[in-house]
């Protein structure tokens, strides 16, 4: 007997059940979390050390290749992790018609913010 046979006719007709991507989502959330531990600690420590810096000081800090690289990695991991986390929150608590538009908007927003942050970082780093 196949697994599909054990599902109720109503459940099958409504197309409810596992989307089969839960494990993948879970792993991506953990991997991005592991990446964010050193990246966010580095960022926080840097902000603390550079407290009181003026504009020139801030630019000089962001221009250092290692800073540029870490900031880019931070933005990627941060918005990827945010998108995965917010997706679960929306899926758990939003059950009205705005659920899907909200999920799509959130995904696009996270992507746009990551791109904006990375391009701003690169513009400063490359001095154009």
């Amino acid at each position: 007997m196949s697994m599909a046979r054990t599902r109720s006719p109503l459940g099958r007709a409504l197309g409810l059940g596992s989307a089969k991507d839960g494990v993948e989502h879970w792993w991506r959330e953990r991997v991005s979390a592991v990446a964010l531990v050193p990246l966010t600690v580095w960022f926080t420590a840097s902000i603390v050390v550079h407290t009181g810096d003026n504009y020139a000081g801030f630019i000089a800090w962001l221009e250092v290749p290692l800073t540029t690289i870490l900031m880019t990695l931070l933005l990627i991991a941060l918005f990827y992790h945010s998108a995965l986390g917010l997706q679960v929150v929306i899926e758990d608590y939003v059950h009205s018609g705005i659920r899907i538009p909200l999920l799509v908007g959130m995904r696009l927003g996270c992507f746009a913010l990551a791109v904006a942050g990375i391009l701003a970082t690169l513009k400063i780093a490359l001095g154009t």
């Binding site: 630019i59 962001l62 941060l78 913010l113 904006a116 942050g117 701003a120």
Partner: peptide
């Protein structure tokens, strides 16, 4: 806010 800060700096 982080992105606003970076874009403002750029």
């Amino acid at each position: 806010g982080l992105v606003i800060w970076l874009v403002a700096a750029a």
